[in-house]
Amino acid sequence: MLADKHKSEIKAILKKYPAKEKRSAVMPLLFLAQREYGHITPAALVEVAELLELDPTEVGSLIGFYTLLHDEAAGKYRIQICTDLPCALRGAEELAKRLCANLGIRLGGTMTNGLITVEEVMCLAGCDKAPTLQVQDADGIHYHENQTLGSAMELIAELMEKGSDG
């Protein structure tokens, strides 16, 4: 249960918003649930709804709208490569394609070890250092810019090592 395990964090999140407006805390709480469980499970959704006195529908309907929220399991690390126009003009589509080929997955797919998922995303505001990607995992979201196939593979190797440790 989130409420027991992350008591102080939940309290801090709720404190950010006026007491009457605790619905605002829904996205931070969903992020919390996602970090805890890897994705937002039906049980977590009900839990968040209860914390905020909302209907589960009001909470769960957000997941499909926002691209950083996931209700389905994927790799422990989601590698999200920007292939939007500015990055595409600097070779990002090619990078994404070759990276996936190297890993033996399709775009959007997950490696059989369950650690790495590679996805395409829209502009990340890192266009001057294109190609840019971000890694979404239990720690949050981190940027990696000026990527080449080599640097991306290195990054994935590091993540796989880290991921299989713990």
Partner: peptide, 24 residues
């Protein structure tokens, strides 16, 4: 306050909806 991935939330009223915990 952190959004969760939606360009439209840059539009100011969508941003406010999103901040209120709704679809942006």
């Amino acid at each position: 306050h952190l959004g969760a991935g939606a360009y439209i939330c840059g539009e100011e009223t969508a941003l406010l909806e999103s901040m209120e915990g709704k679809l942006g």
